[in-house]
Lab assay of single mutants.
Amino acid sequence: MATGGRRGAAAAPLLVAVAALLLGAAGHLYPGEVCPGMDIRNNLTRLHELENCSVIEGHLQILLMFKTRPEDFRDLSFPKLIMITDYLLLFRVYGLESLKDLFPNLTVIRGSRLFFNYALVIFEMVHLKELGLYNLMNITRGSVRIEKNNELCYLATIDWSRILDSVEDNYIVLNKDDNEECGDICPGTAKGKTNCPATVINGQFVERCWTHSHCQKVCPTICKSHGCTAEGLCCHSECLGNCSQPDDPTKCVACRNFYLDGRCVETCPPPYYHFQDWRCVNFSFCQDLHHKCKNSRRQGCHQYVIHNNKCIPECPSGYTMNSSNLLCTPCLGPCPKVCHLLEGEKTIDSVTSAQELRGCTVINGSLIINIRGGNNLAAELEANLGLIEEISGYLKIRRSYALVSLSFFRKLRLIRGETLEIGNYSFYALDNQNLRQLWDWSKHNLTITQGKLFFHYNPKLCLSEIHKMEEVSGTKGRQERNDIALKTNGDQASCENELLKFSYIRTSFDKI
Rank of each mutant, 00 (worst) to 15 (best):
T157L: 11
N42M: 08
P336Y: 08
E71S: 12
D184C: 15
L131G: 02
N309D: 07
V281W: 00
R74F: 07
H274R: 03
R113L: 05
M125D: 05
L152R: 01
P79R: 05
D177I: 15
H236E: 06
T68G: 09
Y118Q: 15
T45C: 10
L233F: 08
Q216L: 12
D101L: 11
L47W: 02
V34I: 07
H59V: 09
L99G: 02
L102S: 01
H127L: 05
D75S: 10
H127N: 05
D184F: 06
L89G: 01
I109W: 00
D165G: 12
V34A: 15
K251C: 06
K67I: 11
F123S: 15
D248M: 03
V93F: 10
I222F: 08
F258R: 03
M83Q: 08
H212G: 05
S225E: 03
P269N: 00
R279P: 00
Y273I: 06
F78R: 02
H302I: 07
T189V: 09
S244W: 10
A119S: 08
Y304K: 02
T140V: 12
P334V: 15
D261T: 13
V173S: 08
C301L: 04
C264Y: 00
I109V: 10
E130V: 05
G188Y: 09
Q287T: 11
L29G: 14
G333K: 03
M38D: 04
A254V: 04
K224R: 05
P197K: 09
V121I: 08
Y134E: 07
F123P: 00
E124L: 02
L128T: 03
D178V: 13
A119C: 03
S324V: 15
G32A: 09
V206K: 10
T320A: 08
H236Y: 03
R263S: 00
N138R: 14
C209D: 03
P36T: 08
N105P: 00
C209F: 02
C286V: 04
A198H: 15
P197F: 07
N242V: 11
F285T: 11
L29Q: 03
L90G: 00
L152G: 02
T68R: 14
D247R: 10
S161E: 13
R69W: 05
R208P: 14
F103M: 05
R69D: 01
R74H: 14
Q216W: 07
E181R: 04
G188E: 04
N175D: 15
G241I: 02
L50N: 01
E51L: 05
D288N: 14
E124W: 03
N42S: 10
N149H: 02
K129M: 08
R92A: 15
L63V: 15
F116N: 15
L240N: 13
R141K: 08
S213T: 08
Y304T: 13
T85F: 02
F115K: 08
E124G: 06
E124R: 07
C252L: 00
C153V: 01
E314P: 08
Q276V: 10
I306E: 02
E71L: 03
K67M: 09
I109R: 00
P187E: 14
N257A: 07
N295Y: 14
Y94R: 09
K294Y: 15
I82C: 07
C182Y: 04
P197Y: 08
I201S: 15
L332N: 10
L96K: 02
C268V: 00
G32M: 11
C328S: 01
F258E: 02
V200I: 10
D86N: 07
G58C: 01
P249C: 02
C228I: 03
Q61R: 13
L155N: 14
E49Q: 12
E231L: 07
Q245K: 10
E181L: 01
A156D: 00
Y319R: 02
L128Y: 01
S225D: 04
L99V: 09
F123I: 15
P220R: 03
T140Q: 11
M137L: 08
D165C: 14
L63F: 04
V173T: 11
L131I: 14
G37F: 06
K217H: 05
W160L: 05
M65G: 04
F285W: 10
N295A: 04
